[in-house]
């Protein structure tokens, strides 16, 4: 997969909105053909802006994007044909039937109607019995299914899912991941945005972290997960010490709060965390423990870490 040529290539992409807000600050990113890329980032990070730029919904302030080697502005017909987009918001017209609105999407992308294909698509999304229902009468989850059907109606090669699991129940989530898996097997490249690390963990090959309009990190999932797996044990001492005693050096402890706190960092995924051994060593060194606390580095912490490292 590493050698695959990028299907989407982004260079120096920046966006400053009319109000003067700089939502993206020069993004460089190559998306590999056939991969599932998760973009993680807090609210307002610029995830939707990035997707909108690639899809042609927002005009770039600087930089270029190519899809399958075609420029998204000069060759917009070629690039857009390849792209499907499921937007973050539940945007659906009011007075339309499910079947019609999906056919409409297919037509927009220049494909002749294909009833059999649409029927299969609706079936896959458990929408067959809703084909003649008006979209405004559907529940939120059903609407999201319709949006997915619309995005897939023209058989795209690159699919953008902007927070696909916001407000979605377990069943739809499962259905969605099944579809994503099926698409991946047929060679479709998938880019999804999310706030949830578990989601990225579940399906992504690579994870990008966006914050404040910058791509701070882009790594294979396993690398990022290793970081995420870090846990900390904070030991509050009854009596402050000046230095970490010699016999505790193997634990790589950090001393803080004027010598009254020791922090032990370990990998929670390992079977042996070394916690018990550490506590034994502590008492052997004659240090009395006042309190213990464990904490897992959250996505939030990772952001903070990455931002700090970046500064």
């Amino acid at each position: 997969m590493d050698n695959a040529k990028p299907i989407v290539s982004i260079r120096g992409l920046a966006k400053t909105y009319a109000g003067g807000h700089q939502a993206l600050k020069g993004i460089d990113l190559d998306i590999r053909e056939g991969e599932i890329l998760a973009l993680l980032g807090p609210n307002g990070a610029g995830k939707t802006t990035l997707i909108s730029l690639i899809c042609g919904l927002v005009s770039p302030s600087a930089g270029t994007v190519t899809v399958a080697g075609h420029d998204i502005i000069k060759d917009y017909r070629k690039t857009r044909e390849l792209i499907g987009l499921v937007p973050q918001e539940l945007t659906l017209g009011a007075f339309e039937k499910v079947g019609n609105t999906v056919l409409f999407s297919r037509g927009l992308y220049g494909k002749a109607p294909n009833a059999a294909f649409i029927d299969d698509l609706l079936a896959e999304l458990s929408l067959s019995d809703k084909k003649d229902n008006m979209v405004q009468q559907l529940s939120g989850g059903m609407k999201r299914r319709v949006l997915i059907a619309k995005a897939l109606s023209h058989e795209p090669r690159v699919l953008f899912l902007d927070e696909p699991t916001a407000g979605v129940d377990v069943e739809l989530r499962k259905d969605m991941w099944a579809i994503v898996e099926r698409l991946r097997q047929s060679g479709v490249t998938i880019i999804l945005t999310t706030h949830y690390i578990e989601e990225a963990e579940e399906i992504a090959d690579r994870v990008g972290v966006i914050s404040g309009g910058e791509l701070l990190e882009l790594e294979d999932k396993s690398t990022l997960m290793a970081k995420l797996g870090k846990k900390q044990l904070v030991i509050e001492l009854k009596n402050a010490v000046d230095t970490v005693p010699e016999q505790l050096s193997e634990y790589g402890l950090e001393l803080s709060a004027n010598g009254s706190k020791l922090t032990y960092t370990f990998d929670a995924r390992q079977e042996r965390t070394g916690m018990t051994a550490l506590l034994t060593s502590l008492s052997q060194a004659g240090l009395a423990v006042k309190d213990l606390n464990t904490s897992q580095s959250s996505l939030e912490d990772i952001f903070v870490d990455i931002v700090k490292a970046d500064a």
Partner: peptide
């Protein structure tokens, strides 16, 4: 829903 028209070829 205009997003669809605007992102279509």
């Amino acid at each position: 829903t205009i997003y669809e028209v605007m992102s279509a070829p």
